[in-house]
């Protein structure tokens, strides 16, 4: 027989057992968000394909044609899209998850389930878009006759995605928890994301920097190494494994901080939301 105690503040735990019990909710929340997202759009799910395509064209015009930014010797659209794939998981995932507790406040106030499911499935929703964008990418690769190194495709790309998801989970849960208490974050996050787009080597090459401090910062940046991993599949360039290592450590650290903050404050969400 199940026996448990409800009291003021339990000791800190990850609640993995409970998460496992409610595992189907991950699916249902993600499924709902994906479904609802494109429900009343005439083009429907086609938007998931059009969005990265339009971004690619836009950035190619500005950065490659007008500003002549170097793209490590591969066609700029391929270059930009490889960065944008990773970037979109992060930016959409972060935006979704940071606002998720507020947008789902009516559910939180009426029913109990492990709260972590909400920001986490918000990130998974962004991942679904990523798979659609991957179709665009495949087409672009064919169009430019780009060589793909299959072995790298199997190992590097998933690793890059994994690092991105861990980073997004971490920052997303952290911001979701803070956003419940301080709604200021709702306004700050879009700026933050915009800034990070230009601070990450999404649209330009990581080699553009010569300043050693910035290079050190790039090594610690999990997104930067995720993008590098994703790109090396086509360029054949060697990956800076030191950067991947430090980036992964930072990503895991962010995840730990995010989940800790979230679990510490989640029991009061219903009172605050």
């Amino acid at each position: 027989m199940i026996e448990y105690v409800i009291q003021a503040q339990n000791k800190f735990s990850l609640g993995l057992k409970e998460l496992w019990h409610y595992r189907e909710l991950f699916y249902f929340f993600t499924w709902r968000d994906v479904k609802v997202k494109y429900k009343q759009a005439a083009l429907g799910v086609l938007w998931a394909i059009l969005q990265p395509l339009i971004m690619m064209v836009m950035f190619t015009l500005i950065f490659s044609k007008a500003l002549k930014v170097s793209s490590d010797g591969i066609p700029y659209p391929v270059f930009a899209l490889s960065g944008l794939l990773i970037w979109n998981i992060f930016s959409n995932g972060l935006l979704n998850s940071a606002n998720s507790m507020v947008t789902n406040a009516n559910i939180i106030k009426k029913i109990y389930f492990p709260r972590l499911i909400i920001p986490m499935s918000a990130v998974l929703t962004a991942l679904v878009d990523f798979f659609f964008a991957l179709i665009v990418y495949a087409l672009v690769l064919i169009y430019y006759h780009q060589n793909v190194i299959i072995l790298k495709l199997i190992f590097y790309l998933p690793l890059g995605i994994l690092i991105t998801i861990i980073t997004t989970f971490g920052l997303g849960t952290f911001l979701a928890a803070l956003n419940v208490k301080f709604r200021d974050f709702q306004y700050m996050i879009p700026f933050m994301i915009q800034f990070l787009l230009f601070a990450n080597p999404v649209l330009y090459s990581a080699k553009a920097f010569t300043n050693p401090w910035i290079n050190a910062l790039m090594k610690a940046n999990p997104l930067s190494s995720a993008i590098q991993l994703c790109r090396s599949v086509f360029t054949g360039q060697e990956v800076d494994w030191l950067a991947v290592g430090t980036g992964s450590i930072v990503a895991i650290l962010l995840l730990a901080i995010g989940i800790y903050t979230f679990r510490k404050t989640e029991s009061y969400f219903a009172d605050l939301a």
Binding site: M1, I2, E3, Y4, V5, I6, Q7, A8, Q9, I108, K109, K110, I111, Y112, S267, Y268, A270, D271
Partner: peptide
């Protein structure tokens, strides 16, 4: 009811539940 259904925690005291 909110405390019983774990939506909000009590300030003090405890509830022992023996069932789903």
């Amino acid at each position: 009811l909110k405390i019983l259904s774990k939506i909000t925690p009590p300030s003090s005291g405890k509830i022992i539940c023996r069932g789903r």
